[in-house]
Simulated scan of single mutants.
Amino acid sequence: MRITRKGQITIPLRVRQQLGLEPGDEVDVIVGDDGMATIVPLGSRTRGERIVEALTGKGEVPLTTDEIMALTRGE
């Protein structure tokens, strides 16, 4: 495979078939500690669903909404 100037590659047909990839599907590339890259299908979740999942539980702040709004307003 060759990388284009835009950093794109074409996944060979046989690999797409083995992974069950169709046009429009999203994939992730994971680089292991050994420097090897693995192409992983992202499944049926949308990009937005993956972002929400990644952020869920990250905003645990012991402030009330009123306290947060006061900080936002600079009060």
Rank of each mutant, 00 (worst) to 15 (best):
G59R: 12
Q18D: 10
E60Q: 13
L21S: 10
R14P: 07
L13G: 03
L63V: 03
L19D: 04
E67Y: 03
L55Q: 13
G35V: 02
G32R: 15
Q17V: 03
L63C: 03
S44R: 13
G32K: 12
A70Y: 00
Q8K: 13
L42N: 04
D33H: 09
I9Y: 04
P41C: 11
D33F: 06
T65K: 15
R45Y: 04
D66A: 15
V15P: 02
Q8L: 14
R45A: 14
D33C: 00
G24A: 05
Q18C: 00
R50I: 15
T38E: 14
T4G: 14
T46Y: 01
T56L: 13
G43M: 11
P62S: 10
D34G: 07
R14D: 09
R73V: 04
G48E: 10
L63W: 12
Q8C: 03
P41H: 08
I9W: 06
R14F: 00
V27H: 04
R14N: 06
A54E: 03
E26Q: 14
Q17T: 13
V40M: 08
G59D: 02
G57C: 09
R73P: 03
A70L: 11
G20E: 07
I68C: 08
G43I: 02
G48M: 00
L63A: 14
E67H: 06
G24T: 06
L21T: 07
E26I: 01
G24E: 09
R47P: 02
K6F: 08
T65H: 10
K58Q: 12
G48F: 00
E49S: 05
E53W: 09
T38G: 00
G43N: 07
V61F: 12
R45K: 15
I11F: 01
L55G: 01
A54D: 04
T56H: 09
G57K: 01
T56N: 12
L55D: 05
G7L: 11
I30F: 11
E26D: 07
M36V: 11
I51A: 11
D28Y: 12
D66C: 01
G7C: 06
R47E: 04
M36W: 05
Q18H: 12
Q8R: 13
L63P: 02
T56C: 07
D28W: 01
G35Y: 07
A54C: 01
G48I: 00
M69S: 07
E53L: 08
I68R: 05
S44Y: 01
T64N: 06
G43F: 03
T46V: 08
E22S: 14
L42D: 03
K58L: 15
V31D: 04
I39S: 02
D25W: 03
G7D: 13
L13F: 08
A37E: 13
P12N: 05
D25T: 06
V52T: 14
L19R: 02
E60D: 15
L13W: 04
I11W: 00
R2Q: 13
P23I: 07
A70V: 00
I11R: 10
I30D: 06
R2G: 14
E22G: 02
R14L: 12
I9E: 04
